[in-house]
């Protein structure tokens, strides 16, 4: 490291390591991880989200929640963009996750045909 610019370059690089701990107003992805969710494949959904996160350098918060009573529609995944409605998607597979991340999380367009519920802001 030979200049202040070098330091700032490095900071940009290493900040990613810390983003999980920065509690700012980030888009949130919430995955249903009750027994029903896990049985229906929620772990793969979660892993798919993380792969996308990694691939596209997304700064988002990924959390889980327990059973919300819609076991029939598991695996479930909610997307909550700052200031927008919380959208619940159901009956998902890994391909659906990719679509939701690209269309909804990144571009802000809700993927209507996968939506099963909407919680107003």
């Amino acid at each position: 490291m030979k200049s202040l610019e070098d330091l700032r370059e490095m900071r940009k690089e290493v900040e990613k390591e810390m983003q999980t701990r920065k509690n700012t107003n980030k888009p949130k992805v919430i995955i249903g991880m009750g027994t029903c969710g896990i049985a229906a494949g929620a772990r793969e959904i979660l892993q798919a989200v993380m792969e996308e996160m990694d691939k596209r350098d997304l700064d988002i918060e990924v959390t889980q929640t327990g059973c919300i009573g819609m076991c029939e529609k598991e695996p479930l995944m909610d997307v909550k963009l700052p200031g927008k409605d919380r959208i619940t998607y159901g009956n998902l597979d890994k391909e659906d996750v990719k679509r939701i991340i690209v269309n909804h999380v990144i571009n802000g367009n809700v993927v209507d045909e996968l939506v099963i519920a909407r919680l107003e802001e």
Partner: peptide, 15 residues
């Protein structure tokens, strides 16, 4: 040291 730098560490020394 990465975590320190990620939190703005050594910026003051650089400045």
């Amino acid at each position: 040291i990465n975590e320190y730098i990620a939190n703005g560490g050594y910026e003051a020394a650089g400045k």
